[in-house]
């Protein structure tokens, strides 16, 4: 058995494990950690009749205790850091964390300053990065589907010698 076969089998096992743990449904708690509200507008539009993520079994819930995934927006300001940690601890395991928007990915336009934390990954372990300022609703759907292992990652590190 080659390494590729082993990796393939491991991937399938992981996939079946995730579907067993989460079922086919994913419940999301959206956390605003100091965002400019651009990302929130896009999250709102996810549940309107045009994008309608409920048809994939993805629900946005009102409490972290009901959630499988935290969708964090904003660069994690000083004031929201503790609140975000408490929300993370209130979410039952197994849990996923998605960083939505450029600010949540690495500080974005706010950068790394006194009041802004410079990204969610400095506070919590992040599973999915969704860059965009704000990301299109389609890009968010793509990220969520990737978190549920329905889609493969498209972007790869490019290194060119010119």
């Amino acid at each position: 058995m080659t390494i590729e076969d082993e990796v393939h089998i491991m991937g399938q096992q992981l996939h079946s494990r995730i579907t067993r743990i989460f079922g086919r449904s994913l419940h999301i708690r959206e956390v605003d950690a100091g965002s400019c509200n651009g990302c929130e507008v896009e999250v709102n539009s996810l549940s309107n009749p045009i994008y309608d993520i409920e048809r994939f079994g993805v629900h946005i819930v009102a409490s972290p205790r009901h959630a499988d995934m935290l969708l964090v927006t904003g660069p994690v300001t000083r004031n929201m850091e503790l609140a975000l940690l408490k929300t993370y601890n209130a979410t039952p395991s197994p849990k996923l964390v998605a960083a939505m928007g450029s600010c949540a990915c690495s500080g974005g336009i706010f950068g790394d300053t006194y009041a802004s934390g410079g990204g969610v990954d400095r506070v919590l372990p992040v599973d999915i990065y969704i860059p965009g300022c704000p990301p299109r609703p389609q890009a968010v759907i793509f990220g969520l589907m990737m978190a549920m292992n329905t889609f493969e990652q498209k972007i790869r590190r490019t290194e060119v010698v010119a």
Partner: peptide, 18 residues
Amino acid sequence: EYEMASRTKDDLYCIIRR
């Protein structure tokens, strides 16, 4: 192109050397 969701930060780099 907008489908840029990634599992690692490393995949989001584009590097050019000369």
